[in-house]
Design a protein around this nucleic acid. Structure first.
Lengths: 199, 199
DNA sequence: CGTCCAGCTTACTGAGAGTAGGTTACTACC
DNA sequence: GGTAGTAACCTACTCTCAGTAAGCTGGACG
């Protein structure tokens, strides 16, 4: 309500606004249940505008995901900056991640929906997105770990990302689990392995 | 083509046939892109029949998923039967899993699509399905591991499942990775932890 | 030979993704 | 001030597809 009638807005600003609203709606209703008409109405604009800016419903979702992913990346990268050892770096990164998913629920919800696009025309885009996510871990690991088999290092990165993703989803069902606890659980398995716990 | 005109078939048999076709179509086209009309036609039956047997498109998917999950459970459970130690049990289970995802691609594809249902009316069903999957690991672990904190054990189970899931998806992009190699990669991190690899 | 009903069909409704083509307000330059 | 030019925007559709209403039919069993 800065002006009596919200009208004519520069391209970049409208775009940000659309993404903001879409992120909200997608994470609330879920991708399938969200309708472009509804998003358009909430933005205060007509549907074809959404198609002008993003080309499809999926395109809009992808834009939201990229946004969230950028933030996540930023946050976790920053967290590992002053690390003193491999263990420290891993722990800091994990903690930043678990804090992120608690404090930015919508963003995290969107990131999860990325998976829902498997087997879709946008699969290539998604593959790229996934690669970037794991690359962060891979880079972190290659900096601290001995460089054995490249393939094995890549596998380990995927492994860590998958594990944390699932653990994060599990955390949603357990409000009593703090980011610190989640980090400890993850570190416990990742760092020490399961061997120590065997009978 | 057992009879000239495929007609009137007992309920149970039709149902199996529908699930079989649906599994194929869903994994080929992806859930969203698959149409009920197409599935109905391939079965050689009209669309309302699908709704008679399963109540919705999602219901049909769920039926397929349950089928695949049952098989996966069966396979992995069988694999761990003769295990001589915790490590052996874990390794056998993992190998069975990675063999499964290579040899039953459609089934595995379906299982992955389960995730796409997050935020859907059927979320409760899905939660149940997920719990059963992780329970298998949790049961396996509780049999062999010392029973510390319940919450921590549950977290570890989720963790393992998530990690293997992602690793499995990664394997799809790497044909040169055999189930045996994948198992080794997973065991390497899970059992020994990352500590041993730090510089 | 009827009658009953499980298995089946045709023919629709409604919702929502995506689009064709026209309209309006801001800008720039005379 | 006027008048082109264009970026932002809209109305009014089409088309696909999930889901449904209501009725038809083949064959088992009396």
């Amino acid at each position: 309500m800065t002006t009596a009638k919200r009208k004519r807005m520069p391209r970049a600003e409208r775009m940000r606004q659309m993404i903001e609203v879409a992120e909200q709606v997608f994470s609330e209703r879920g991708y399938a249940a969200a309708s472009m008409d509804e998003i358009a109405e909430l933005v205060g604009v007509s549907k074809p505008m959404l198609y002008e800016y993003f080309n499809s419903k999926e395109g809009l979702l992808l834009a939201c995901i990229r946004e969230s992913r950028a933030i996540l990346r930023e946050v976790t990268e920053q967290a590992t900056v002053g690390a003193t050892s491999a263990e420290d770096a891993l722990r800091r990164g994990l903690l930043a991640f678990f804090v992120f998913i608690r404090e930015r629920r919508e963003a995290w919800s969107l990131l999860r929906h990325e998976m829902a696009l498997i087997g879709t025309p946008a699969a290539d885009e998604v593959e790229e997105t996934r690669r970037q996510q794991t690359d962060l871990i891979a880079a972190l690991m290659s900096g601290y770990f001995t460089g054995d088999d490249d393939l094995q290092a890549e596998a380990a990165a995927e492994f860590v990302v998958g594990a944390c993703e699932r653990l994060a989803i599990w955390c949603e069902r357990h409000d009593e689990v703090t980011p610190e606890m989640a980090t400890e659980y993850a570190m416990d398995v990742l760092w020490a392995g399961l061997r120590g716990r065997a009978r």
